Amino acid sequence: MTSVAHATAPVAPGQLGQAIGVDELRTYLGALDDWRAARKRELDQIDAAALRSDEADSYVGDLSLAMTMWQSVSDRWTQLTKIWDSGRVGPQQREEMSRVIWGTGTASGNLTGSIGLSLAEACRLSDALTAALRARLSFDPMAADVAARIQATRATLERCRDQLAGGHAARPLSLPDLDELTRRLDELAARARRGSDVSGPFAAIEAAAARAERDLIMAAAAHRGLGRDYRAALERRRELEAEADQLDKLVERTRAAVVPAPKLAVPDVSRLGKVPQTREALDTFRGRLDLVGTAMTQVRDTYTSALGEPGVLLGLLRAFASKAQANGRAKDPLVALVREQAETALSAVPCHILDARNLVENYQRLIVPVPGGGI
């Protein structure tokens, strides 16, 4: 099999919210562009090799994710170069570039943003996925770069330990024993230095380390997403509780002002219970929050309309009175009597809205007959 260069993503400069230095950005953009090109060539050759494999279907999932991840990184690189504008950047633009590099939701529809990965993490995930695919397909199983590959695998295992020590996510169930992998790797390195062919066992360890890093990156992203959604659900619950208080007051005002008032009930937010902290339960809870929000909108619209109806009817009555004045009907005793009755009904507290509505409708018919009736 043709040798493939093993691309490794460059280390991202700066940190979120920092106006990264111009020279650091220039170096990073160039290195990231080189990485994009090398990774694309590597993935193309891996894809071709996978298609020739007897177990081609088993590679589809990881290969598809690797290709999509590459495209996502490439999209962010394009975004960065647009902001970079050939180096014509001030502090504001350089801070914006740091958000693209370190932020977790920079583009709509962007895979890395949707699962909560920064550009730096997306590059690491791409490296891990590609290393796993390389190992599974036995790309250059033990070529002249064996020492470098062993060192790279050892670095992968160290990054896995660091991520676990950070406590940013639950330990994936599929995660292997990292200490055991390191012990086996050290044994293979010693055997390789003595000239032994350790290609098979090493490929298995290399793949296991790459899968471990991939799983940890994804777990950390999922954990951040869960935390973000939990906080959003808490805030939405508080908003709905405050809205419920306002709706209770609206209902009281309406019932005091209009008879009969609507009979819709204000949803009781407390019946939702506490905000859960597991993904499946949280997603269900957020769906229930949406339903409560929709119900509150209906309650607010219904009671607001009912509370405002006497004012609307009074406006109609005055408009009809102007017509009566214009066509000489205003002094008609019946017209004057119905107008007086309507004004009395509309000024009453509470307003008996059905009676008031009928009186305004009757007044309209006296002034401007409407075919079929109705206001």
Rank of each mutant, 00 (worst) to 15 (best):
170 A>W: 05
121 E>Q: 14
173 L>I: 13
60 V>L: 01
270 S>K: 10
14 G>H: 08
200 G>T: 09
342 A>I: 04
75 D>M: 09
214 R>I: 06
348 A>Q: 05
275 V>Y: 12
240 L>G: 03
346 L>S: 02
372 G>V: 05
132 A>D: 09
275 V>D: 06
10 P>H: 08
30 G>E: 10
374 G>I: 04
300 R>P: 06
274 K>P: 05
15 Q>P: 06
143 A>H: 13
290 D>A: 15
116 G>V: 04
107 A>S: 12
185 L>W: 00
341 Q>Y: 04
265 A>L: 06
333 P>V: 00
8 T>L: 09
272 L>T: 01
46 I>S: 12
341 Q>K: 13
126 S>N: 14
59 Y>W: 12
230 Y>K: 07
301 D>P: 03
138 S>E: 12
217 I>M: 01
207 A>D: 01
131 A>C: 10
114 S>G: 06
308 G>P: 00
264 L>T: 04
18 Q>C: 09
321 A>N: 15
286 R>G: 00
373 G>W: 01
72 S>K: 05
167 G>A: 05
370 V>R: 11
241 E>P: 01
240 L>T: 03
297 T>I: 04
57 D>N: 11
15 Q>A: 12
177 D>H: 01
322 S>Q: 15
183 R>Y: 00
223 H>R: 10
44 D>N: 12
78 T>L: 07
295 A>Y: 02
45 Q>G: 11
296 M>R: 08
23 D>A: 11
369 P>G: 09
360 V>Q: 00
113 G>L: 07
8 T>E: 11
69 M>D: 08
153 T>F: 07
285 F>Y: 15
314 L>I: 00
116 G>Q: 10
123 C>S: 14
177 D>F: 01
98 S>Q: 02
70 W>P: 04
215 D>H: 03
136 R>N: 03
165 A>E: 11
235 E>R: 15
331 K>W: 13
52 R>G: 09
326 A>C: 06
202 F>V: 02
49 A>M: 06
342 A>S: 10
259 V>C: 06
355 D>E: 13
296 M>E: 09
294 T>M: 07
321 A>K: 13
75 D>H: 11
204 A>I: 11
72 S>T: 11
306 A>P: 09
286 R>C: 02
170 A>K: 06
40 K>P: 08
190 A>V: 09
345 A>Y: 07
188 L>V: 01
216 L>T: 01
322 S>L: 10
256 A>L: 13
112 T>D: 14
7 A>T: 01
74 S>P: 04
367 I>S: 11
195 G>D: 14
26 R>K: 14
284 T>G: 11
211 R>K: 09
122 A>S: 14
75 D>Q: 14
114 S>Q: 14
321 A>F: 04
272 L>Y: 01
31 A>W: 02
177 D>A: 04
180 E>V: 12
238 R>G: 14
293 G>S: 03
104 T>H: 12
304 T>L: 03
20 I>D: 00
165 A>V: 07
38 A>G: 09
150 I>P: 00
